[in-house]
Amino acid sequence: MPKLIVNETEAQLTVTVEESRIDAAIATRFKDRLREIVLRGRKPVRLDMRRVDFMDSSGLGAMIAVRKALPEALPLVLDGLTPNVERVFRLTRMDSVFEIRPANTPQE
């Protein structure tokens, strides 16, 4: 089972991804697990991606499926993207669909 740590506050759901790779070996289970978490929460979601140092297009597909499962009004922020992960979003133009904060962006 993919390691996802959930931290829920009044205002939002923070999900920390404790996997170093979101690849074809894990993408389907990752998608199912994360979708279950965000649908149960019904709150804005912040996904902490700091630990993920590799993602392929099956991982990207999982992210898109989760975004589609959330009502459009609920934000899904991808926080702490490492360069390898940010590259996949940029090359596929999916950086225009998600709210993305690369790892070097200072926290507010």
């Binding site: 297009s57 990207l60 597909g61 898109i64 499926a65 975004r67 589609k68 996949v88 090359l91 596929t92 133009r93 225009s96 669909v97």
Partner: peptide, 23 residues
């Protein structure tokens, strides 16, 4: 081309060969 970016129905696949060709 990249799969069409329809905001109401985002593509969940079809990126693999685009990435391969682009890189």
């Amino acid at each position: 081309n990249l799969p069409a970016l329809d905001p109401l129905d985002l593509p969940e696949g079809g990126f693999g060969w685009c990435l391969i060709q682009g890189l």
